[in-house]
Write a protein that binds this DNA or RNA. Sequence first.
DNA 1: GCGTAACAACTATCTCCATAGGGAGTTGAC
DNA 2: GTCAACTCCCTATGGAGATAGTTGTTACGC
Lengths: 194, 194
Amino acid sequence: MSLRYALLALLTAQPMTGYDISKGFSGSVAHVWHAPDSQIYPELNRMERDGLLTSEQVPWGKRSTKKEYHVTEAGLTAFRAWMDEPLDIRRQRDPAYLKAAYLDWAQPEAAREQLRKQREYWRDHLALLEGTRAMLLDRSHPTLVARLSHLPEEQGELAARYRIHAYNGLIAHAKTELAWIDDGLALVDELDGQ
Amino acid sequence: MSLRYALLALLTAQPMTGYDISKGFSGSVAHVWHAPDSQIYPELNRMERDGLLTSEQVPWGKRSTKKEYHVTEAGLTAFRAWMDEPLDIRRQRDPAYLKAAYLDWAQPEAAREQLRKQREYWRDHLALLEGTRAMLLDRSHPTLVARLSHLPEEQGELAARYRIHAYNGLIAHAKTELAWIDDGLALVDELDGQ
DNA sequence: GCGTAACAACTATCTCCATAGGGAGTTGAC
DNA sequence: GTCAACTCCCTATGGAGATAGTTGTTACGC
């Protein structure tokens, strides 16, 4: 059900089409909640059906239109209600930790290869997160800009500070992960060496 | 598909019943891969059907029996193959981060309450993880003991070291999470104060 | 004018996972 | 000797999510 609220969160910044969302997703909320377009389009329809969104046909090119989704009052209410609801905490379920715990079953070279791949992924991801945080810090992040434009100064400041806080967490997480992966590589070398 | 390999991982230590697994799950692998019994039983059946496990009826009480699952050669091969396979990296999808990013939409008191709940959860979880790591470090962890009993010295040492490494990662993760939650609490106080 | 990349909006299918039960045997305390 | 708590093994249902398609339009460089 969180996808619904991730979409509401995004659409409170500005009206968007499904395509905008599924692309823009890679730029901001996606760092916090990723979803493929095959989930996004049906969910947008359901949300419209449930009255959380309205859609408007806006012209696209000469002959076409596209569907732009707007959050309704009911949508805002639902989002606020969800934000005030207690959070259901999810239990750990990460294949990377499962594999790490049983690395003695892998070929050392395969283990190293996997750890290197993970390190690469987290390095790239960290760079992306730090780039996004930089844009939030100097208030140049596009979604944030859109949001600030229709919010009073003080409200906008709140939004910016919390977005930055979330990215601080994501960045800390990525760094912890990277340090742990490096430890893993060192451990494989140590245990394979002798 | 990872559940299957989590089960294989556990059963390589010693034969177990479905019930043992679903209980023992809370003690060890569960920290890395949690699953309810409604997933475990059908999966065990499927794994037996696929030849990765065999089951043996062992007496339980005077008149009953229970089903004890053993890993087959094919099961070991499948597990090793999975360990050597490249890891598919999962994208972030954590409602806690989603909420944190939009905390300006919540009532400050509701926000504090949620953060306190999360802090409590992670504190408890951290204590559990540290307890388990301590048992791994002094080689008293029951599943590890069972495994060491049928493994040569050097092999057992490998297994212990990698288990400990996994827990180091989980503990580092929990600590990072806790520090971030404390930052969040401080931020709510700061932004609500004025 | 033509090809290609991007834009737009889906649908279909399959696995995974969570929640919520059911039902029967065993152990141990009182 | 009976009641509760625990052990054991499931099933049913529904929602979430991943993967892999389809169909058409528009913008733009050449």
